[in-house]
Computed example of a mutant assay.
Amino acid sequence: MPWRIRYKDRALEWHVAFATLAFGIGVASPEFILSKSLDWMHRVMGEVAWGYVFAAIGAVHLLALAINGARWWTPLARTVMAALNLAAYSFLTIGFWVDAPTSTGVLTYGFFMVPCLGTTLFRAARDAFWQNQQPNINEYLPMVENGLSDQP
């Protein structure tokens, strides 16, 4: 990659964000046909609109990953985008389940993308809400240096 990834342990999150962007671009293109059996989803909005939604979610998720750590609110942005990404693929999985329960779409999106996105959502939420609750060793160093190591 031409840019440096700040947090290498987020490879799965980068992968699903890129996959969502690519999926959205593919669905929005006229050559791509999502599935004629997805009547439930087509009643909500058209196929090109679904493509734009997925592409936008993927692009903004990538942006949230790229700026993560620059400000206090960026882990929260990652959490929101992971939740939206999970919601979009869950909706797609439900669409396949309702209209074509024996299709490979149920397996592909329901058993691959949804659990991956659940994992990324958990990790993003952990970073956003629990990152400041870890003990800071620098607070305790002066106590240790002064021989007061038995005090909290």
Rank of each mutant, 00 (worst) to 15 (best):
L62W: 04
L62E: 05
L63M: 12
A64F: 03
A64I: 03
A64W: 03
A66G: 11
A66N: 10
I67N: 04
N68F: 11
W72S: 10
W72A: 10
T74I: 06
T74M: 05
P75E: 04
P75K: 04
P75V: 06
L76N: 11
A77T: 06
A77W: 06
R78T: 12
R78W: 05
R78C: 15
V80A: 14
V80M: 10
M81Q: 07
A82F: 03
A82E: 03
A83S: 07
A83M: 05
L84V: 04
N85P: 06
N85V: 05
L86T: 04
Y89R: 10
S90P: 08
F91H: 11
F91A: 15
T93F: 00
I94P: 00
V98A: 01
V98F: 01
V98Y: 01
V98W: 01
A100L: 04
A100W: 02
T104G: 14
G105W: 01
G105Q: 02
G105Y: 01
V106K: 01
V106I: 01
L107G: 15
Y109C: 02
V114F: 02
V114E: 02
P115Y: 08
P115S: 08
C116L: 15
G118T: 13
G118Q: 10
G118A: 15
G118W: 07
T119I: 15
T120I: 08
F122A: 14
F122E: 12
A124C: 05
A125P: 09
A128K: 06
F129S: 07
F129I: 08
F129D: 07
W130L: 13
W130N: 11
Q131T: 13
Q131K: 10
N132G: 09
N132M: 12
Q133K: 11
N136C: 10
I137G: 10
I137P: 14
